[in-house]
Design a protein around this nucleic acid. Structure first.
Length: 416
DNA sequence: TCTGAGGACACCTGAATAAA
DNA sequence: TTTATTCAGGTGTCCTCAGA
């Protein structure tokens, strides 16, 4: 288990502990409690149990009897494992402070946690400066439950367990990203539904392998089971832009690389709408035509213009991102001059995500055949570094096959 | 039998928002 | 501007359970 090398764990901890700051407080950075476990046979199990007993359980158990202490111990375990997970993912951990949530929902029951002990622990941790606790509030259109994030004091105690923690790989692997009522349509899919079988195959293959933030790979549908969906796994939540954490993790003890589709949504849009190749670097080409040097700005324009469903909304969104009305017009004109068949302002983002999901799923299925561990990361695949050649070839092949074109796909490789 | 803890539930307050 | 609604957290009550 090279993943447990102290040097590797220390390396990851030093990345996240440098310049400690709280995560952004928005929905993208909120995470529900997960059914996490220390890996079977993990070396850290004893240390973790000792920490749990001495540092947290003993000082907090008060006058509880044996059964109640056991119950509190279970709560401590769930919360500490989840806090260790979110401190690397840089997500707030959601702790609903409402008794009805625990009596009415499936997930707290599955985790075996209740309102009073959970609330007690969250407040105890805050009182002892182990977490920052933000109270829940009903913000405009965006209610937020109470949430916590570890302080450096707690991170110092938990950092070494992160690589030993995993979410058991268990079904359901197909999830619908909509209100709870629609769950049934997925739960009722026949056992031989092709995507159910494919995801089961991928997850079965991944079970014996090791990687950071190990958990199931799920296909999340946007609205229904006939529209396709996106692949999700906890690994992809590891930060990699502001701090280069994800790329410095290992798969089965080996360094990894991430193979990305370049300018993917734009490329998919052109392939789908006109069978047109976007060229090697469409952002730079459009930027040059529009007289705008910043490739980043051009990329932002395309993200917004292909994501929204109307031009006025896109104009406002662009303005917020620092793209003036004048530059918006220039970029729009340049884009349509170079790519007359490009379709903007038509919610392409959702379709693109569905194509991406299908392509990455097919790459993963080929990975199963070839014995290569592939982890989906948005529009990229992470593989052990010695498989980068295989991954580049397979990703290009599956992209072209899905879009029914030849040699349109471009990939780039990111290494530690 | 008493006590502490906690599950379930009802009802409260408070803030934000929508409707009148 | 007022009132109603929604959705957070908070509190009190009733009940059960385990241990002293």
């Amino acid at each position: 288990m090279h993943n447990t090398r102290p040097t590797h764990a220390q390396n990851l901890y030093s990345i996240i502990s440098k310049g400690y700051e709280l995560p952004t407080d928005d929905y993208k950075h909120h995470q529900w409690l997960k059914p996490l476990k220390l890996r079977k046979g993990s070396n850290s199990e004893n240390n973790f149990n000792q920490l749990l007993e001495q540092t947290f359980l003993d000082p907090s158990k008060g006058g509880r009897n044996n059964t109640q202490v056991e119950n509190l111990r279970r709560h401590w375990r769930v919360l500490l494992l989840n806090l260790s997970f979110v401190m690397y993912q840089r997500h707030w951990l959601i702790i609903p402070m409402h008794s009805n949530y625990y009596s009415e929902h499936y997930y707290p029951k599955r985790l075996g946690i209740g309102y009073r002990p959970t609330k007690y622990i969250a407040e105890w941790l805050q009182e002892h400066d182990y977490v920052v606790l933000l109270p829940g509030r009903k913000y405009k259109d965006q209610p937020a439950k109470a949430r916590v994030f570890p302080t450096p004091k707690l991170m110092e105690l938990l950092w070494s367990y992160f690589l030993e923690i995993e979410q058991p790989i268990e079904a359901p692997y197909l999830i619908i990203n909509e209100p709870e009522g629609k769950w049934e349509s997925i739960a009722d899919l026949p056992a031989d539904h092709p995507e159910k079988l494919e995801l089961a195959k991928i997850n079965e293959f991944l079970k014996p392998h090791q990687w950071a933030c190990k958990g199931p790979v799920q296909l999340k549908y946007n609205s229904n089971a006939f529209q396709g969906g996106r692949l999700y796994t906890p690994f992809q939540s590891l930060p990699d832009r502001r701090m280069r954490l994800r790329i410095n993790t290992l798969i089965d003890g080996e360094n990894i690389c991430e193979v990305d589709f370049s300018a993917n949504h734009l490329r998919l849009n052109l392939a789908f709408n006109g069978g047109v190749d976007a060229g090697d670097d469409p952002y730079t080409t459009v930027g040059a035509e529009a007289g705008i040097e910043s490739r980043q700005l051009v990329k932002k324009f395309f993200t917004i213009a292909m994501g929204g469903d109307n031009e006025v909304g896109a104009l406002h969104a662009c303005f917020k991102e620092g793209i003036s009305k004048e530059n918006f017009q220039k970029l729009k004109d340049a884009s349509l001059k170079i790519f007359p068949k490009l379709e903007l302002f038509n919610c392409w983002g959702i379709y693109a995500q569905n194509f991406e999901g299908q392509i990455l799923k097919n790459v993963m299925l080929e990975g199963v055949k070839a014995g290569v561990v592939c982890l989906p990361v948005h529009d990229a695949i992470a593989v052990p570094i010695e498989e980068s050649g295989w991954a580049c070839d397979e990703m290009r092949y599956q992209w072209d096959k899905q879009m029914e074109v030849s040699a349109f796909a471009r990939v780039t490789t990111d290494i530690p």
